[in-house]
Design a protein around this nucleic acid. Sequence first.
RNA 1: GGAGGCGUGGCAGAGCGGUCGAAUGCAGCAACCUGCUAAGUUGUUGACUGGGAAACCGGUCCGAAGGUUCGAAUCCUUCCGCCUCCGCCA
Length: 429
Amino acid sequence: MLDLQFIRENETIVRAAIQNKNRQGIDLERALELAEERKKAAGAVTEINRQRNEAQKNRDAEAGKRLKDELKAAEEVYQTIEKELVSILVKIPNIPSADTPIGPDESGNKVIRQWGEKREFGFTPKAHWDIGRDLGIIDSEKAAEVSGARYTYLKGDLAMLQFALIQFAMKVLTSPDDLQAAATEAGLELNTKAFIPVVPPVMMRSQVMNRMARLDPIDERYYFEKDDVVFVGSAEHTLGPLHMDETIAEERLPIRYVGYSTAFRREAGSYGKDTKGILRQHQFDKIEMESFTKPEDGIAEQDFMVALQEYCMRKLGLPYQVMLICTGDMGFPDQRQIDIETWMPGQNTYRETHSADYVGGFQARRLNTKVKRSSGESEPVHMNDATVFAVGRTLIAILENYQNEDGTVTVPEALRPWVGKNVIEKVVI
RNA sequence: GGAGGCGUGGCAGAGCGGUCGAAUGCAGCAACCUGCUAAGUUGUUGACUGGGAAACCGGUCCGAAGGUUCGAAUCCUUCCGCCUCCGCCA
C-alpha cells in the first residue's frame, strides 16, 4: 500500500503508475475525497472523546450516557469511510522506478545483459521432458494418476541434483567470501552481511498474505477455508512477514534471509500452457532471498541480489540473460523487477528462471515493519525479494544444457560434491 | 483433542471498576560526585496521532476484536499467542 500523503502530493505519478501497470478502474478521485472525509470524522471522534473524558472527571452520568451514543455513531461514520478508503488504496499499485521501461506486456521488457556461450551440440538437443522420460528421472504419468496434472515424481540422480542445488545455494548465500566476490564482480560496494538461512512455514494466514499484497488473485492460491490459511506461492510470502509489527534500529540493517521452501501455485488461467515437463508445476521447490534495508539502500540491495543470482548461474555455467521488466509485466507491489531468463537449448529459447522484486516500503507499510533512525524518526523499511533458484526450472536448464549424445547428462562441476557423481544415469527399477 | 494458568512500557514486574499512561527495579539519557574493579546521588526517559513556528494543548494505545458500565488494564464473550499437565502423534 502506498502512503496516503505520497498519493496526495504525487497524484500525476500515481495516475501514471495505474495506467502503465494496467490497473485502470481505480477511483483515485474518490480516495482523495474519502481521505478528507476521514480527517473530519477523526476530528469529530476526538472531540467527543475529549468531552467524554471531561464528563468522566466530573462524574457526569447524564452527559456520559449521551456522549456514549454520540461516540458510537461517530465511530461508525469513521469506520465506513475508512473501509471504503482502504479498499481503494490497496488496489493502487506501487510506483515503477525511473529506469523501468514503459510497456504493455512482456514485449516491453528489455535485455540488459547476456552471459555465457550457447553450447554447440553435435546432435539435436532434446527437451528436458524427453531427457527425463528416457532416463526415468521424471515421471509425469504416474504423478498425473496419483496427484493430477502439473505434478511429477523426480527420481534417482535428478532428486539428488535437487538437493545439491539447495546445498550449493545455501552455501553461497552464507559464505562471506562468495558474497564479497559476487558484489565485486558486479562492481557493487555495499555491506555484504551474510544471509540467515531459514526453513519457513509453507502455510500462512490469509490475512498476513493480504498484508504482503500477494493474496490477490486469490484464484492463484490454494486456500483452506476451514483454517483460513493459504499455501505459500514462494518462501518470500512467509519470509517477508518475519518482522511484521516490529520497529528495527537502523544499525541492525540490512537484515538478510535465505529461505528454502516448497511453493504452491494453482496456475489458474494457464490451462494448456507449458503442460509438458516440469516448467510449470503446482508444486515446486525454491530458494528465495528476502531482505530488509534502509530506504536509501533498497535499489542497491536489488542489484546485489541480482549479482548473487548471476554469480550462482555462472558457477553452474548456464547461459542467461538479465531482463528489466516493463511496467505492464511487472508485479503489483514492485518498484523495479529484474528477471533472469536461462537458455534452454532443448526448447531453443530463453525461459524465465529468476525474479528479483524491489518493493520499497510498499509491503512494509501494511506489515508495519519500520526502521527507527538515529534521529528518532521511524518509517517503513524497504524490502527486496529474489529467487536464488527455482529448483525445477534450474534442473531443466541443467538437463538441457549438459545433455550428452548418449542420453546421459553431465553434472555441473559446482554440484558434484553434493551429487556424488559426474554423470546422471538412467534409473533402473 | 481434554484440564488449568498467563499475555501490562526496551526488559523484569505491580495494579484487578474512577485518584492509572500505569508503582517499583533494571536498562537508557543528563547533571553532579568518585581514583578503583557492570560504584553513588539527583533529575529525566513510552509509542502512535491531531493542532501549533515553538512552548504547549488534545486524542488513542495495558495481545486483538466486540460487549457490560456514566466510567475498564481491571468484569463478560470470541479470537490470537505463550506456558503446565493429560491424550495422540512424524
